[in-house]
Design a protein around this nucleic acid. Structure first.
Lengths: 250, 250
DNA sequence: ATCGAAGGATTGTTGAACAATCCGTAGATT
DNA sequence: AATCTACGGATTGTTCAACAATCCTTCGAT
């Protein structure tokens, strides 16, 4: 409470606080905006930004599964009130990224063996259905782009980028369906997966192997051989699940 | 605003407040619970209970799409603080049941034509995949039970129960997959659908017609003709979407 | 070594406060 | 009349301070 900038975990250093607090700033209501159309892009609330910040830290592996998130700590580090942090927690909990243990605190979600299988079940359902439905040329091109992105990452031996590219690939497959809800669901599932990716990185060997898988799946998609693409994808998911299960879980 | 029990919307009348407020109750820390195993079922927080209450009112059609949810009103009606209501809102917003308009308030979500299509897209992906994967005899029995539930409702001309039974039927289909996440996703999607069911009830004629559809789908499932069950289900979903689109939508 | 009480830390929840923003309305302008 | 605009009330967004309940750790007693 003495010096605000003393963050112990790796926060940007800057505070997230707005200028709307309880007793600062002399009022100076200025320009009217005229009768223009309603603002289309609203600035997100502080709670949303806290949630986003945490989501980022989760994705980056700065916050590992099982880690405890103390309200007061985050509140101080980000320069926001505890209540606001709580609102952000409610968001993240709804996304399964954190877990609430009543009266004990919130913790970064950690996936057990059952969860890994569950996540892959969701992916099998959604991704395979999506690819079998095909998509517009633009969407297919996006899948192709993700394949190339992976290649490029492999060329410079960037593990991190390789993982991202793979996620983009699978995200692009779901995006074929042009469904806002499915995209959201997939984004959440991928976020969950990133969580345990950071616990133990799968060996580079395996990462390379699915570059070829992706290429083949993409080729089938481009050729309009949707059923075959679906089967290839399904086989990949099964293999991937097995790999992840043996690396993590018991 | 004068008398607390004067709820204008149909709340239960009872308050949701706990006994943990700011300045009541003389401390009397009593019995120790021994070194028993950690409590397995924790009582949900007030925020969760507010969210549940609102979810219920949403499902019952007490709160129609587009309706505004004022923080202070709900806060008073339920006897909880505004901050707690806000936490509940964060939960519901993450579930898409309400929408936040920054600085304007939260409103009951209302699905436009695009949303209806989107919801059905999700259902087609998940339900069809689920039924094509089959399930344990118990799970199949649950599907059968939902069919009979619908029949019973039709026998006594209970529209409301008929709708519920149909939702149970489709929920049971997804449950075949034994996936916690898919069940949650499906539950959320069904909750979204309940939202606009209350806007305009589809004619009873149509409701009856899908009793037979369900029966046929269930029979195919029981017979292990999974592909056929999938096709029947898909056809049903397409028809249902078209029906809903013409009734609602533009 | 085990048990249980004492203490400190943290969560859960409240109430009050206030800036910013929105919205309806009434008065001023063209 | 049709606006534009300034004013004011209502509501949201956010903070702060307070405190009961609960959890966790430590420490002393049996």
């Amino acid at each position: 409470m003495t010096s605000p900038e003393a963050g112990t975990r790796g926060i940007s250093g800057q505070t997230l606080a707005t200028g709307r607090t309880g007793a600062k700033r002399a009022g100076a209501a200025g320009g009217t905006l005229g009768t223009a159309a309603r603002l289309r892009v609203a600035i997100p609330s502080v709670a949303d930004r806290v949630a986003t910040e945490l989501r980022l830290q989760l994705a980056e592996g700065l916050l590992l599964p099982g880690a405890r998130l103390t309200e007061s700590t985050i509140s101080e580090e980000l320069g926001v009130s505890r209540n606001t942090v709580r609102e952000a927690f409610a968001e993240l909990a709804a996304e399964r990224l954190v877990v609430r243990h009543p009266n004990r605190g919130v913790f970064v979600a950690s996936l057990g063996p059952g969860d890994i299988h569950d996540v892959y079940t969701v992916r099998r359902f959604i991704e395979v259905s999506a690819i079998r439905g095909g998509g517009s040329p633009e969407r297919v091109a996006a899948v192709r782009a993700a394949v190339e992105e992976g290649r490029a990452a492999a060329a410079v031996d960037d593990e991190e980028a390789l993982g991202s590219a793979n996620q983009h690939f699978h995200g692009a497959i779901v995006a074929l369906a042009e469904s806002r809800r499915l995209n959201t669901i997939m984004a959440q599932v991928l976020a969950e997966m990133r969580l345990f990716f950071h616990k133990a990185t799968v060996d580079a060997h395996f990462y390379r192997s699915y570059l070829d898988d992706n290429e083949e799946i993409c080729k089938a998609l481009e050729a309009g051989e949707l059923d075959r693409a679906g089967e290839l994808l399904l086989a990949y998911l099964d293999r991937s699940e097995e790999k992840q299960s043996t690396v993590h879980g018991d």
